[in-house]
Design a protein around this nucleic acid. Structure first.
Lengths: 249, 249
DNA sequence: CGATGACTTGACTTCGCTCAAAGACAGTGG
DNA sequence: CCACTGTCTTTGAGCGAAGTCAAGTCATCG
């Protein structure tokens, strides 16, 4: 049934110096020196949030909340990976996003969550009561600005997801997902990309059948572009062809 | 080449009492009485924004800005319809969203727009300089909160778009888009849905080829579910089957 | 060591894509 | 006012890729 505590997949956030918590990462929308995601909170903001937050640890495969249930809390991930999905009337499941350390989830619609969120690895999360958060916003526009930045960033990610799903070829979609996952790996100088989720999750994220995902991985392996090392790691063998495939958009 | 000013398609916002401008509409994320979108700005907020805003009128088919160009302004649509899209390396074009009156666009990434935005109908827009807006945010958390609400709302729409594109059947995708368009029609008690964009735009939004869109419309017409009245209006003939198709998700 | 869930593989079907060519519409200019 | 022209749209034929169904294997855990 449930894997116990033996799950060693980390999926992000285990870099050498553990970042202060809670923290939020995003690429700001205004012009800035760097090009990658930056930390949005200052130390004092972090402390303010931590005062309001409830630290919660979830084992792998735990449902944090279900779609359409009343939304009391917003969550910031300290460590671990979750999936945010919706089960459709057709019986299909659409995974809207995989979320990692420094990501945010739980902003709802009319007080009800729109997606179900379930952990993939063990997760530490910071739960912020929505009223407390609104209170904070009213007093501190800078914190609110950070959340706004994050939402803009998340919207861009959703649009990128749209582009991924819009591709017709399964191999290309898979390559794009792998590139996403690599970005979330703190130590991606290594040749292997951590893949914490199951192939079935991947299928639901990419809008493919499970079999199509399996066949796409097989073809990528046959072409010598990448290979699975166990079920939760991928090694890129031919970087240039991999990038070319993922970039074909 | 370019249609001149004779374009009569409205596409939203021509309801009897013209709303005060600029205005933003969204479903707030906190629990609330109503279930539909509400106006986010108060009168005083509107006036504050209007003081900063440049009112700009664009003819149909005008490019407001191009992807990757420096982002100086954020826009709120007063009236009309635009498309926000990105041309991919493969030669394909992905339309990320159609935007209507009371919608927002132009929040960028690192000071550069991520999508190209082009008008479909004539458009009146309110351009807000990003620095002025940030200034406003720092002084008025309530305005900032409105923008945050809007971004959360837009994110939900993007996820809904993901669900649409995730469907395999062209007819179902088309039905879902038509339902979206109906929502944006101020007078949708009528049997006809305004469809301001071309079928080619629809194809790029749905992730289909133009021909697939045409065939889907044909099949819907043959089955007596709906029919095109001219190129920019659709009449729903069988509401229950239409809804069933769109809801099958 | 048996069970459960995750994964793999094969055969067949279906649906949308591509290419190609013709038809319909709207704004333009005479 | 009407023919002109470019765009948008429609339709057909053939192909390929992903979906579905059905077995069967592998891995992990009790």
């Amino acid at each position: 049934m449930m894997r116990k505590t033996s799950d060693k997949r980390s999926g992000g956030g285990t870099g050498a110096p553990p970042p202060r918590q809670p923290s939020l990462a995003a690429i700001p929308f205004r012009r800035l020196a760097g090009t990658g995601p930056i930390e949005l909170f200052s130390d004092t903001q972090r402390q303010q949030l931590l005062r309001q937050a409830i630290v919660r640890d979830f084992p792998a495969r735990t449902i944090v909340y279900r779609a359409d249930s009343p939304a009391e809390y917003v969550f910031i991930i300290g460590d671990g990976v979750v999936k945010s999905y919706r089960d459709l009337a057709s019986g299909r499941r659409r995974i809207a996003a995989f979320l990692f350390a420094r990501d945010l989830f739980g902003l709802a619609e009319s007080g009800h969550y729109t997606n179900t969120v379930q952990t993939i690895t063990p997760v530490r999360a910071y739960a912020l009561h929505i009223d407390a958060l609104a209170e904070l916003f009213a007093h501190d526009p800078a914190i609110e600005y950070s959340f706004l930045c994050k939402m803009v960033h998340v919207l861009r990610e959703a649009q990128h997801h749209n582009i991924i799903v819009g591709r017709r070829d399964a191999m290309g979609r898979l390559a794009m997902l792998l590139r996403l996952l690599r970005k979330h790996d703190p130590s991606h100088h290594l040749r292997t990309i951590p893949v914490p989720m199951s192939k079935s999750d991947i299928a639901n994220y990419l809008g493919l059948s499970l079999e199509a995902v399996v066949r796409a991985t097989r073809r990528l392996e046959l072409q010598g572009i990448m290979e699975f090392v166990g079920r939760h790691e991928v090694r890129i063998l031919d970087h240039s062809r991999f990038e070319a495939l993922a970039a074909a958009a």
